[in-house]
Design a protein around this nucleic acid. Sequence first.
RNA 1: GGCGCAUUCGUCUAGGGGCCUAGGACGCCGCCCUCUCACGGCGGUAGCACGGGUUCGAAUCCCGUAUGCGCCUCCA
Length: 419
Amino acid sequence: MPPVVRFAPSPTGFLHIGNVHTALFNWLFARHEGGEFRLRIENTDTSREVAEATEQIQESLRWLGLEWDGPVTFQLDRMDRCREEAHRLVAQGKAYEDEGAIRIRMPDDGTTAWDDLVRGPIEYPNEKLEDLVAIRSDGRPTYNFASPVEDWLDGITHIIRGDDHISNTPKQIRILEALGAPPPEYAHVSHILGPDGATLSKRHGSVSVEDFRAAGYIPEALTNYLALLGWSYDDRTEIMTVSELVERFTLERVGASPAVFDYQKLEHFNGVHLRALPPGEYAERLVGYLREQAYEWDEELVRRAAPLVQEKISTLAQFPGFAGFLFGEVDPDPALLDREVLERAAAALEGVEPFDAEGIEQALRALADELGTSPRRAFQPIRVAVTGSKVSPGLFESLELLGKDRALSRLASAGAVAA
RNA sequence: GGCGCAUUCGUCUAGGGGCCUAGGACGCCGCCCUCUCACGGCGGUAGCACGGGUUCGAAUCCCGUAUGCGCCUCCA
């Protein structure tokens, strides 16, 4: 029987990257096993913010490529059913009323145990289990009751969730037992921590999927990096495509210790996946990103500039700083300029026809030769004059994209302010 | 406090008794490539939390300690 798993976020805001981690493990497991991945929203309230968060969560999952199966279900819609089940348990003597609330009886001795798919056998002494409230006095089911009831209704076979739920598991096992539901398998994965060992939060940097998206990361890198937090394929394979992850992911290779989120390594992964994109696809990602970020730059020029930066930047967000000189004026530091070089470069470029990288390179190398300096030294003032920075895409290609007119005018105005 | 879970380079991890004088990756350092930056190549730095066992032999098994985290709510 193919497994059925679920991701059950509460709609309190944007999708946190830590939740994405568990969602990803559920999704990879379901896809690898040919099972189903369900999305359940644990809403307890109908406020407007919640409705927006619900939409946001789905948008984030779609962007990441974590498509779910079947309709999205809402905890709110199951409240009546939860109450019915609770009353049934009361009628069966497995639960009782307590000042308007309903409590489920828990065993007093012995232990409740399960074989955790990630952690192995876990035992919990029953004397620590209190009769737990299933229905509050106001009639609302509690999380610890509603969650297992819904898992049962949805036919969830494997519960893959954060390790903060380990202590809830014995209670839920007993509830399922009382309901007469078949017990699911449990797999508790570790939480993701910030560099200081505390739960990852805003002050560490990006935390929500939207944050990472705005920071110029792409789904391929995020899923690849996240998959490697607590899971590994072997002792050397790290860079993987989504389909490779699906093909290789197994719960057996999920580790139990917590992992610290490393932004630098994510950025490295992002660079690798960015470089691996076909040039046309890369250009479209760049255009899409700039559009989302509300840049109103000539998209045709962005596409032409894309190949110049693909090998050089590791997040899409670096594009404006790196290639912005193509889209707006520059303000070079006079101290880094050299009047003679700039004047002679302008003269040399004047005659280049057609004005393409190849011709430009020939002309400028010849110039360096005439000046008796290394290309390194000769090109730097030109780069600064044209791009406004000591760091830029390839100089010849940049000049070509800029066009002869703009190139010459930048050389001229820089020459005028040169020290 | 009780119960539970965790503990290999700074970080992510491989490792499940001899293959480990512990492998890979990010970061960092050096060199090479080079029009800058980046990419790429080469080399280097750095780790089995501690203490007892078990065993011919332990990073690997057991016990204890320490540390971290989680839960102990009519929160989710």
